[in-house]
Design a binder for these strands. Structure first.
Lengths: 192, 192, 192, 192
DNA sequence: ATATAAACGAGACGGTACGTCGGGTCTTTTT
DNA sequence: AAAAAGACCCGACGTACCGTCTCGTTTATAT
């Protein structure tokens, strides 16, 4: 992937302009029309790219969605150690929902969850390659807490399951959790 | 709806045979081909019914899915008071996952969650009319616990949120929660 | 085909308006843009019909071409017995080329000949079912001459071959035979 | 074209290997898949050449077809004077059909005829530059006969028209003329 | 028993989108 | 400077479903 430059070929390079135009178009459609109107046809129309060009680089809708999502959410990858489980969890929820609410990333993630219900390969990729990366962030928070002596005897994976599930529940019903609701989840983890 | 009998007309009644054939066909397709292959066209083909007949009674896919789901899950509506929060929660998780795993209801519920991502009216109906009924079951369990003096100062709605979310998380990734994972969730509710 | 009415089915009848609109559109495109621009896509666009509707009734381009051609050329089916081989042949050539030049039928027939070069089923249909009908007209002229004692010992099928071939040669090169050229062919048949 | 060598430049010469590979590939596809599968894309794939290379040297499919056809049919250019119109015509038909049947040239010529129906420039080239060369062969036969006193008052061009037409008729319907059919044509020319 | 009106199967219809093939052109590196 | 090769935009392919429509047939009341 990163050693592409090593296998030099005499060939026209991929057009970055087109690449960006396609992502932009997809993202725009998601924002303005929503997932149900996100079609390869429409992306091609709006971006000015040809359908075959899109299929060449993103064989499934999932692939496009993932790339859009990744562009918007690099912030999440680092939750600073602030010495308190509660604070770090609050920060995690806060950053996540700030993103999901204020950018297209919420609609994008919702779309990914819909998409994997009808695309087995997408499901495979998402659960095997994508989710772990994102669970990892939360796991680090929990492990730091453990080092501090908290979370004795707790099943950290299960905690992550219901934390994520909590978020998915709101996302999929197009609602936003109240501070109190988030507070309850955090309390259920750090035992008050 | 219920006063249909009052406006008597000389008219042919709805055919129950066709009604059942359509539900059967939809359910079969869900089981054998999955959500992505569940189409009105296919249901009509398999059931022998005409497409307009299906549209007359179920204007959206959601309507069919809900009816299929309801047929399979009446059991869930009653969790007996066994005097222990932990036991009742265990029972709730156990019955739910037993259903989802061993009948078509898991695939059906998963399909509903996918469907509401692209059907605003379906989302409206599901969140306003359907989810409350199902949250109610869990709420009763929690309220019974509260009467026993447990769950002091807890946000019961939020607890239900992450309980359901936990289930959705597994359902949508086509996995099944381990006993340990369920145990962790239960523990997080009843505080060990 | 003609006893369709006997096997009555309760179904929406084929829309004649659409049927005619499609033929009209195809014919217009042929006339204005030529065979190379005759596409199902374009016919659908111009006629306002859906592509599937067109494919339902005319599985190949050939089928449309044949129907267009038939609409324009019923005149040819009857060459009157005027008592003279030469006169009847002249009449045949004259009517045929009058049609081919002044209506879309020339372009249509040319298109058919191009089409059968890449559509084996079209070729099969055209040679087995269509050409014979049209050769028959010429054959009747020759048989009438034979009854009058002309064309002794001649291979009538071969005569038809080169008569038709002569016409195809001009049609395919987008030229029109001169009177002298037609005269020469006629002379070669009736032996001056 | 021939003074290319005069404008010597530090330039890479056209690769004859590639040139031959392209013709070979085109010819192979014609033989094995037929005209409808003869595409620039496919030729590039099979020959290993890039599409632009092919377009540089053969701007249209016609150009490739002509070059393939020419490679196979140099024999035809000389029909010996054997002192008899009938014999020379027989020889002409015989050599032509022997070629068309036993090499890829029949499929090639058929393809050219299809191609000119959708390529105006190809038609122009074919009728103006190519057909005359081939008609010339037949014309020489007829002129020799005329010198011998035959074909008095006949329109030689028209005779060539229907001779060629006769051949095209069979070629385009993927049939082969019988000896009797050819005999009839020859008889119609030399008047028995 | 008979008229009536909705329910029904069948499937045609105008559409949208699918995923793919091929046509020509462009841009880059290699020779 | 030509060759080579893959990327590109584009148009069309033939198919699957969508949701609506128009048919002729069936059938349980309501007269």
């Amino acid at each position: 992937m990163n050693d592409k430059k090593l296998e030099l070929k005499a060939t026209r390079p991929r057009s970055d302009k087109t690449h960006q135009a396609i992502l932009k178009a997809a993202s725009t459609i998601l924002k303005e029309k929503g997932y149900s109107r996100l079609t390869f046809e429409g992306i091609a129309r709006l971006s000015g790219a040809g359908k075959p060009t899109i299929y060449r680089w993103w064989p499934t809708k999932m692939a496009i969605l993932i790339e859009i999502y990744d562009k918007e959410t690099t912030r999440l990858l680092t939750i600073k150690d602030v010495g308190s489980l509660k604070n770090e969890l609050d920060q995690w929820f806060s950053i996540l929902w700030d993103d999901w609410q204020n950018t297209v990333s919420g609609e994008t993630y919702r779309s990914i969850l819909a998409e994997i219900q009808s695309d087995p390969k997408g499901l495979e990729f998402f659960t095997k390659s994508y989710i772990p990366k994102r669970r990892h962030i939360l796991m680090q928070i929990l492990l730091r807490a453990k080092e501090r002596g908290e979370l004795e005897g707790r099943n950290l994976e299960a905690i992550i399951d219901y934390c994520c599930g909590f978020n998915w529940y709101y996302l999929l019903t197009r609602t936003v959790p109240s501070k109190e609701a988030v507070g309850e989840v955090v309390r259920s983890i750090d035992g008050r």
